[in-house]
Write a protein that binds this DNA or RNA. Structure first.
Lengths: 230, 230
DNA sequence: GAATATATTGTAAAATATACAATAATACCA
DNA sequence: TGGTATTATTGTATATTTTACAATATATTC
């Protein structure tokens, strides 16, 4: 099909990914050190212009894969940002995604023009180029809203996890604290997790039971008929 | 700034609006009859390609204004759709918005290449061109999710409304029914609406009290610290 | 085996949600 | 004018959920 059938203004389109990770020290965001203009030598969200031969969602995965080596991660579209002057080189619309990954399961391999990649604690994010700070704020808010309604937090935890880890995860994202007993009662009363019978090892105190997430049951639900409601 | 500094693929970008309205017969969506290719002579969502001289959100307002005459309506971005072949004339990314309007307050004036504009009951939407049916589905789901958490339903009602109207609105959007007494208790226990002291007139039965929405209190809240929770 | 460190568990009270039906206010009509 | 039709308004008892709160258990280390 002749692309010139659209006699109209055209713009570049990019994808920016807000990749969240979690470990004992709390919630983290993955940034890359830019080795390309504009904003060369700055930490920024892993994002790039996209080509026109794949669907938007595939492009998002490809951008993340190219810059960080991350593959097959949980991704969700957040919002599209399109201020006229958000990119110094011209009109670029950017579609923001958030991604949730299990830090332990992946090795980050910065490549393409990403010179480095590093996890930054959510509370220590530097000034970022473009409108990336705004995008990050949006992503945090979205994650906060979403995690209260849908069981997506498990994407941030290892396959087997303790209830304490799960609680800390919710507490860092929601920026609040829960009572240990009430949290456990509530989580267990939903059907989301199962006791594996296994226990933590190599800890210097009473080992905790290991749980896993029951993924299967919760596919195919429309977002509006969910009520995780933590 | 020289736009050629971006040596990259470019695409057209459009906006598609899912405009919701509500009256005694239920929830409705505004469609226009296309007087331009592609899909000339079809009912479709009011959407159009955008130019590069305004911010994305302004473009969304402008598209709606140009096609329907609607101005200053509540709009919110939903999602961006970017399948390779979603537009027969080439690569077009479309950013979908939903809009909520008070049907009575506006006259729709189809213009530009929109030959007609009409309200379609949500349950009687025809087959739409492009990926508009998918967009509409997305919008319905988003509205459903959102209205349970944030007091946006009032954008669909006249300035003064009865509790029965409010209940019908929630029932149509959420596709459920509420007990009259419990619904009223719950709504009134939140601080969202005030009894104006006025009553319905010209009805052939006991006139209902008229309420209005307390808009001011609920600005500036981040979406994550809301709990409307109907 | 004592000290240290974290994991695990139950119960009572308060708040919220649910189920359910009788009475009130207006217009219309005989 | 009184009866009928139609929708609006309101309360209470019960079930469920949420909250507040602390003692005991299980492992390691010294």
């Amino acid at each position: 099909m002749d692309p010139n059938l659209i006699p109209f203004f055209k713009a570049a389109v990019s994808v920016d990914n807000v990749v969240f990770g979690f470990d004992q020290s709390g919630l983290k965001v993955l940034l890359i050190y830019r080795g390309a203009d504009p904003y060369r030598n700055c930490w920024a969200l892993p994002g790039d212009l996209i080509s026109l031969d794949s669907d938007l969602s595939s492009s998002a995965e490809k951008v993340l894969q190219d810059l960080t080596g991350l593959d097959k991660v949980y991704m969700e579209q957040i919002h599209t940002f399109g201020k006229v002057d958000r990119h110094p080189f011209g009109r670029v619309f950017t579609v923001a995604y958030f991604a949730l990954i299990k830090i332990e399961d992946y090795n980050i391999h910065p490549s393409s023009w990403a010179e480095e990649a590093a996890w930054f604690p959510i509370s220590e994010i530097p000034d970022l180029p473009f409108d990336h700070n705004e995008i990050l704020l949006f992503a945090k808010d979205q994650l906060k809203t979403k995690i209260r309604r849908q069981p997506i937090g498990f994407e941030l935890l290892p396959k087997y996890f303790t209830l304490t880890e799960l609680q800390k995860l919710y507490e860092s994202i929601l920026e609040t604290e829960f009572d240990v007993r009430n949290f456990r009662k509530k989580i267990l009363s939903m059907d989301f997790i199962t006791d594996t019978g296994l226990k933590q090892s190599s800890v210097t105190h009473r080992p905790a039971k290991l749980f896993k997430y029951n993924a299967k049951k919760y596919s195919k639900l429309s977002s509006s008929d969910f009520a995780f409601d933590l």
